[in-house]
């Protein structure tokens, strides 16, 4: 017992630093995939996408830019994986200038994955299309409720939306089964909820950065928002759900899950250290070393 305590007492800060460092670095090279139990708000998005019949259209709005990419990108990739696997037709719009660039980047990655796993090509115009950026925010959403193709007229290559096979028969936003928004601020998920869910009764879900999450949670509680992924944790939750149903995706980059590993380990580590510190303290107290 005494040796054990003495061993614990010899822990100094350099030891803690080293452990912290490796706790962060090792999972980044060799992901551990520690258990993640997805939150209900994320589960409900998964259930919804899972329940949408094949070939239906969903709308994804990329409302973030490179600055908030670390948080929003993993969520978008996880959702896209699921949606492509389900053979849903995805129409992507952007309320932020760089949203389309982000979407292209995400889909380029997924194209590789699908080719390798399922030998399937994801084709622009058939499986997905990306409509161009327009200034307007909430007013665009408002207009798209009346005339979708009239609002988002062109795709990012300048092709008319009414000529793309995916979007040509979309009349209003009601033709979509679900709206997903990945938002880092305004305009973003808030506007989607306020207009699309309230006015057109199309379910809205999406992901937000950890910082904006408290602002959006009231909509979740009031049921206006179908589901919400908050920060890296939300992405990790969704990735877990996808990987459970479609294991092949496990071997690809799961930024959310791999980001959760160091978090899990360091948090656990700190907790263990706190327990050790208290064992030492109680021992010393019993021995009368501290008053």
């Amino acid at each position: 017992m005494n040796i054990f305590i003495r061993l614990l007492k010899s822990i100094d800060r350099k030891f803690i630093f080293i452990i912290t460092f490796f706790a962060v670095v090792i999972p980044m090279f060799y992901p551990l995939y520690l258990p993640i139990i997805p939150e209900d708000s994320v589960r409900s998005i998964f259930k919804k996408i899972d329940a949408i019949p094949e070939g239906s259209k969903i709308l994804m709005s990329f409302d973030y830019d490179p600055a908030s990419k670390p948080e929003c990108h993993p969520m978008a990739i996880a959702n896209l994986r699921h949606a492509f696997k389900k053979n849903l037709k995805i129409v992507i719009i952007q309320l932020w200038p760089f949203g389309g660039a982000m979407a292209t980047e995400a889909i380029d990655e997924l194209k590789k994955e699908f080719k390798e796993i399922y030998n399937r090509d994801i084709i622009y115009g058939d499986d997905y299309c990306i409509l161009g950026y327009k200034v307007g925010g909430a007013i665009l959403i408002q207009q798209s409720g009346k005339d979708f193709n009239g609002t988002f007229m062109e795709d990012i290559d300048g092709k008319k939306a009414s000529e793309i096979s995916l979007t040509k028969d979309v009349k209003t936003i009601k033709d979509f089964e679900l709206v997903l928004s990945y938002s880092a601020g305004d305009p973003g998920i808030k506007q989607w909820v306020m207009i699309v869910d309230a006015q057109y009764k199309v379910p809205v879900a999406g992901g937000v950065t950890a910082v904006t999450a408290p602002e959006i949670t009231p909509y979740l509680n009031s049921g206006q928002l179908l589901g919400l992924m908050a920060g890296l944790r939300g992405a990790a939750d969704y990735e877990t759900l996808v990987n459970k149903k479609y294991p092949p995706f496990k071997k690809y980059v799961n930024s959310g899950t791999s980001g959760m590993d160091p978090q899990n380990i360091v948090h656990l580590m700190i907790i263990i250290f706190i327990i050790i510190a208290n064992i030492i303290y109680w021992h010393d107290k019993k021995m009368g070393l501290v008053r």
């Binding site: 822990i11 800060r13 803690i16 630093f17 452990i19 912290t20 460092f21 962060v24 360091v266 580590m269 700190i270 907790i271 250290f273 706190i274 050790i276 510190a277 208290n278 303290y281 109680w282």
Partner: peptide, 27 residues
């Protein structure tokens, strides 16, 4: 990230009731 770990190790000891509350809620 390193300092927060070492600070927790050093400071979170249940020396008094207040310290216990601090420790408990952080935990």
């Amino acid at each position: 990230a390193f300092f927060i770990a070492s600070a927790a190790f050093r400071a979170f000891r249940a020396k008094s009731f207040e310290a216990m509350l601090l420790l408990g809620s952080a935990f």
